[in-house]
């Protein structure tokens, strides 16, 4: 039976999810919600999470010495190497278990958490290497579409037209021109991997994907849209409903790729135009004030439509055809 919110609440009446109060993330931040859901699911299913964190907002704000917001084993090494770091932890676990140096009756879950900077960009090599080597770990990307820790710079995940300090909307250039990297397909290209998108606004989908990742005999990867209210320039209380909107507008399609087999996990019966997702965020406001704003939004609409159709086609084409 899948975990429900009520069930989780019962389980966590007298225990913490691994993350405690007193962290110093911005009010309304999506990242701690993402992390909390992942850890609660693992703990509820009897796993002992051991976690690695890439440098970023959440890493900084949760461990300001001598304070730590973690009650699970936690390691931060650097910005670009959380996947390699957790691969070392996981390997140590296998080695020590094999040689009888640690008890073998525990069910560990090795998590690596990183933002989009640590995942799409500077940490991509480390991530690719760890996945290719087949370590059993779960990589959770909390994707807030920019380098928010350093104050809203462009990342490989920033959508076109979003105003950032290193790709600002200017008189000549309308902000970032390039589309987001398709990180899930990059990861899914490693063949023996479970890769999926998720977001807190669709909690049951998110929880079931964590469950699947926990039991997957190999590396798994979840790209979780996790708004940064500050630099998306949305009200602090809209963190959750904006991610729902992202799904309803095809901006953030929910799907998974299990060893090459695509499955779209949420198929809304009707969609909203992507402009609804764009217009609620003031990071797009400078763009929207430009005379050709409509054109740019049309382009984005066409892109999300095409990507959706492509996903459905991939689902059809890869059905029952796992690469392994």
């Amino acid at each position: 039976m899948p975990l429900t919110m009520k069930k989780l609440a019962e389980i966590f009446t007298d225990k913490d999810p691994g993350l405690t109060q007193g962290h110093r993330m911005c009010p309304g931040c999506g990242a701690p919600i993402t992390v909390k859901i992942a850890l609660m699911t693992a703990k509820a299913l009897g796993y002992e999470p051991v976690i690695g964190f890439a440098t970023g907002c959440m890493e900084v704000s949760s461990t300001i010495y001598p304070y730590t917001s973690w009650t699970v084993p936690y390691i931060h090494n650097a910005f670009e190497n959380v996947a390699a770091t957790i691969s070392g932890v996981e390997t140590a676990y296998r080695s020590l278990k094999k040689s009888g140096k640690i008890p073998s009756d525990r069910k560990y879950a090795f998590f690596a958490f990183g933002g989009d900077g640590g995942t799409y960009d500077i940490g991509l090599q480390s991530l690719s290497g760890a996945i290719e080597r087949g370590h059993k770990f779960i990589y959770i990307l909390y994707d807030n579409e920019g380098y928010m820790n350093t104050g809203n710079q462009r990342s490989g995940s920033t959508p076109p037209g979003a105003d950032t300090t290193t790709a600002p909307v200017g008189k000549k250039i309308p902000g970032k021109l390039q589309l987001k990297k398709n990180i899930v397909e990059i990861v899914a290209g490693h063949e023996y991997v479970y890769a999926a998108t998720a977001t807190a606004g669709e909690p049951m989908d998110f929880i079931s994907k964590i469950e699947k990742a926990l039991t997957f005999e190999g590396p798994s990867f979840l790209a979780v849209l996790s708004p940064c209210v500050r630099y998306w320039r949305v009200p602090e209380n809209r963190t959750i409903d904006i991610t729902k909107l992202a799904v309803q507008t095809k901006y953030w399609p929910l799907y998974e790729v299990d060893r090459g087999v695509y499955k779209v996990t949420r198929k809304p019966s009707s969609f909203k135009p992507v402009s609804e997702f764009v217009k609620v965020q003031d990071r797009f406001r400078p763009l929207l004030q430009k005379p050709d704003a409509e054109e740019i939004i049309d382009e984005l609409q066409q892109y999300v439509d095409k990507r959706w159709e492509r996903l459905l086609a991939l689902e059809e084409a890869t059905k029952d055809k796992p690469v392994r």
Binding site: M5, K6, K7, L8, A9, E10, T13, D16, P17, L19, T20, Q21, H23, M25, P27, G28, C29, G30, A31, P32, I33, K36, I37, A200, P203, T239, I240
Partner: peptide, 20 residues
């Protein structure tokens, strides 16, 4: 109605609940 939505989503783990 004790749906636990607020508890589930609170980023600061500031909602107090007991057995849902």
């Amino acid at each position: 109605i004790d749906c636990m939505m607020c508890w589930f989503y609170c980023p600061d783990l500031a909602i107090i609940q007991e057995n849902s």
